[in-house]
């Protein structure tokens, strides 16, 4: 009885319930997108966009517009800059991505150090879902739902674009549109996750659930559902445990995701290490 009281203690606080709800939503949106990001090989791109939004957040604070707006503008701006530089120079794509995002991130850090100290801004770096304000809750929900609906509507086209862009073009789909649609959704999703896990760890939300699900299934639809399951569960458990550990919530969520991935890496029924080892033994005894 006493144990139960202790375990349920976090749930009697409004801020905990709100944090659980928001982190679950963010976990779900990021997880759906993570399937596309990992299959497309855009992990670095995700990392880049998430870092590049920092100056946008600081500037938005200075100007007095919602930070989400600034973040989104800089997120899209970084993507455009990467595409522009890549198409006009001989520098390889991953190098261009690295140059652009570190530059923007550095600009963000400089601005941050020059702006009068404000607790709220530093939370953008590491996330602070327990202290999330009402206006940010509403913004996060709106942007998250927009991102989720966009992916669901374009899901099949985006899947085909990621899998086989040549075929997508040959049946008359606009692959340029799909390319930028996916990048825009990526920027939107990153913006929703900023408050929860912060700039530095958001990329984990964008790749780990997808990577975990990829080890567990050979069906794309199932991959999405598994990723969402991992993402939401990690968010809930991470937020919940962070209450007891009195530690950074974003870090707890990402650690949960890493644990899920490690479990899948070892124990996945077909693509896990144990299954692969067993398969090797079987092959050897058959030979």
């Amino acid at each position: 009885m006493e144990v139960l009281t202790t375990l349920l203690a976090p749930l009697q606080y409004d801020f905990m319930l709100r944090a659980l709800g928001i982190s679950a939503l963010v976990g779900a949106v990021c997880a759906v997108l993570s399937c596309f990001v990992t299959l497309k090989g855009w992990s670095l791109m995700g990392d880049a966009v998430s870092h590049a939004v920092l100056p946008g957040v600081v500037l938005a604070y200075l100007v007095g517009v919602p930070f989400i707006v600034g973040a989104f503008v800089f997120g899209l701006g970084s993507v455009t800059a990467i595409g522009f530089i890549q198409s006009r120079s001989r520098v390889k794509e991953d190098t261009v991505i690295g140059v652009v995002f570190t530059g923007l991130f550095a600009l963000g850090l400089l601005l941050l150090s020059k702006v009068p100290s404000d607790v709220h801004l530093s939370h953008i770096l590491f996330g602070d879902v327990l202290g999330i304000r009402d206006t940010d809750v509403i913004q996060t929900i709106i942007v998250g739902v927009i991102a989720l609906i966009s992916i669901m509507v374009l899901r099949k086209d985006l899947m085909l674009f990621v899998f086989d862009p040549t075929h997508a073009r040959s049946i008359g789909l606009n692959t340029t549109f799909l390319h930028y649609a996916l990048l825009t959704i990526l920027a939107l999703t990153i913006v929703t996750a900023l408050q929860t896990v912060g700039v530095i760890l958001v990329v984990a939300m964008l790749i780990t659930p997808g990577a975990t699900a990829y080890l567990l299934t050979d069906k794309f639809n199932r991959m999405i559902w598994i990723a969402v399951g991992c993402g939401v569960l990690s968010s809930l458990l991470g937020t919940y445990f962070s209450y007891f550990l009195d530690g950074a919530t974003g870090a707890c969520i990402v650690l949960m995701q890493s644990l899920f991935f490690a479990a899948a890496f070892l124990f996945a029924p077909k693509h896990g290490q144990l299954a692969l080892a067993r398969q090797r033994v079987r092959d050897q005894s058959a030979a």
């Binding site: 299959l39 099949k156 085909l160 086989d164 794309f220 199932r222």
Partner: peptide, 28 residues
Amino acid sequence: IAYVPQSEEVDWTFPVSVEDVVMMGRYG
């Protein structure tokens, strides 16, 4: 028009089945 290139430049580990791939031909 249906076009089959010389070699498919696709990720062969992509989580799609043969049936899923053929269904992509129906998207249009």
